[in-house]
Nucleic acid binder design. Sequence first.
DNA 1: AAACAGGCCAACCGCCGGCTT
DNA 2: GAAGCCGGCGGTTGGCCTGTT
Length: 340
Amino acid sequence: MIAMQGSGGGSQCTATSSNHISSGGKTNGRAEGGGGMVMRKGPWMAEEDEILIEYVRKHGPRDWSSIRSKGLLPRTGKSCRLRWVNKLKPDLKTGCKFSPEEERIVIDLQAQFGNKWARIATYLPGRTDNDVKNFWSTRQKRLARILRTPLPSRSSKNHGKVPISSHEVAHLEGPSLDLILLEGDSSNGQCSQAASKMAQMPDIMNPVPLNLDTALPLLEPAMEKEPRLSNNPLPPLLLSFDRLPHPLIDLPLLQEDASELLPSYRDVSFPDEFACLEPCPCMPPPQGLPFFGLDAEQNGITKVDKYPRTPDFFEDLPSDMFDYLEQPPPPPPPPSSTSW
DNA sequence: AAACAGGCCAACCGCCGGCTT
DNA sequence: GAAGCCGGCGGTTGGCCTGTT
């Protein structure tokens, strides 16, 4: 049998049963598989898990389709693989919420890799791509709800091939200013002042490409202290950063009338920059300021800090503005592919 | 206590790329 | 080179659980 054990670090982990079997699951359907075999769908039964575990123990996690062809289970190979990867594999952190460290890793790697959940999951021992995906999805929904904004359009799928920065979205999605501004320290109500300002600019309220990395931790405390932000249908004011603000590029948006400055903002050659996943010759290397993320060139990850930052900029910010951000520990290297 | 909303998560679907024939 | 198969991956769905009203 496989012991479902949480990792040592996850004190909240509960060694839950791998089988959450509810009679009458989502589909509980049957489908005709190849060879006339009636394929089972829906929640897995404990007996099926045992068969699958036994198969993997004997043959390793491969040749999934042979499980069906040998008549061991009335499940597709894909279904078997998914069940193994997401639930039955040893050392999964089943029933354990993401730790703050894990959240930071996900946030940072998502900014770098885009929706490459499987890749991101390799940096999170015990987590599957499904876990990461669900975590991120929940996060998106939560912020969307807080901001009362639609989630980013699903029609413009990025398929995770290239991380789309908020600025890139601004270029892709049309003529209107679709970056929303969060100004100042959310903890002292400045964001509500910004909200009032921006509410006077009706043209900028659609759509809202959100970067949750910074917005969520900033906004949630703000919502608690400023309920009217969440109670009003006020458009949220969120400058969508997947990085810390750059004084030359972003500060213009902090001016009284951002729309007047939009042309200059757009004149900056963003598309080329954001096409860069490797160190980009079009921008100088990062210097001076801390990056709240991965170290550059660590564990095979090249974190490209595209923007030089000056200490002056941060001196103008409330000193505790980024208190919620700590230097995260470096992510563990991707686990070497264990031959199971 | 009931209704509702939101969070969580398992599992399916469709697409894509690699491999084999 | 083309076709088919298979596994991997990301997106999506929908049911259950939990907290709030």
